[in-house]
Amino acid sequence: MRISSSLWGEEVTNVQNQLFVKIANAFFAVIFLVSAFIQHNDPDPLLWMSIYGYGALVCMLAIFGKDSKILHYAGLVFFVSYAVYLFFNHNGVYTWFSLHSAENITGSMSDDKPWIEASREFFGLLILNFAHILNLLFRKSFRNKRTQTVDQ
């Protein structure tokens, strides 16, 4: 973020930041909707369709300024908790990284390589967390700019 000394410069930067956040949220919403759709053939489709659907919904709400901190924090708590579980699970990310030398996880999944699904799910959760953190950071930035303008 660029900080300008003039009030007009701050307003332009704020508008640019808001546009960036809207575009980022639109991008994430599309990615999460596509991800939710793809989950229909997953071993646990309802869970992952719900997870990605929630991410898409919160991003769409953020585009229109209808989101709330509670939605972002609730998502973060769940997504971080589940990511930690997937990381340390018996066939999770740690297993993939330490015992299987972080081999390619873009190939097809099989019963003899259960860490592939857990690793992919883990990285999906990281992307969801990134989207929520981005929204929380910019919400705070926009709120601080609004209060500074009112104080002047």
Rank of each mutant, 00 (worst) to 15 (best):
W96Y: 04
K145G: 02
F79P: 00
I127F: 11
K66Y: 07
R2L: 12
S110P: 01
Q152H: 07
F37Y: 15
I31F: 13
V12P: 02
Y73A: 01
F88A: 06
S101P: 01
W48C: 11
N129H: 00
V77S: 13
Y85E: 09
I116P: 05
V80P: 02
H90K: 09
R120A: 02
Y52H: 11
F142P: 04
Y54E: 05
W8E: 11
P114F: 05
N41H: 08
R120F: 01
E11D: 09
Y94Q: 14
F122I: 08
R143A: 15
F37C: 01
A26M: 10
A56V: 02
R139G: 08
I105R: 04
N91M: 14
M49S: 14
A131Q: 02
N91E: 12
N104P: 03
N41G: 10
F88H: 08
V93P: 03
F32E: 02
R146W: 04
Y94T: 07
S119H: 10
D42T: 05
A74V: 15
L57A: 10
S110D: 05
F138V: 10
T149M: 10
S6A: 06
V12Y: 11
Y52A: 00
T147Q: 12
S141N: 12
L19C: 05
Y52V: 02
T147G: 01
V58F: 01
N14V: 06
I51G: 00
M60H: 02
S68L: 06
P43D: 13
L134T: 12
F97D: 09
I133A: 03
Y54C: 04
F79H: 05
A74E: 05
I51T: 14
T147I: 10
T95H: 14
V15I: 09
A83V: 06
D44P: 00
N25V: 02
L128A: 12
D42I: 05
I105D: 02
A24T: 05
V21P: 01
R146D: 05
Y52I: 03
D112Y: 07
A24I: 09
V34S: 03
M109L: 08
V80T: 13
N17V: 09
S68I: 08
N91Y: 15
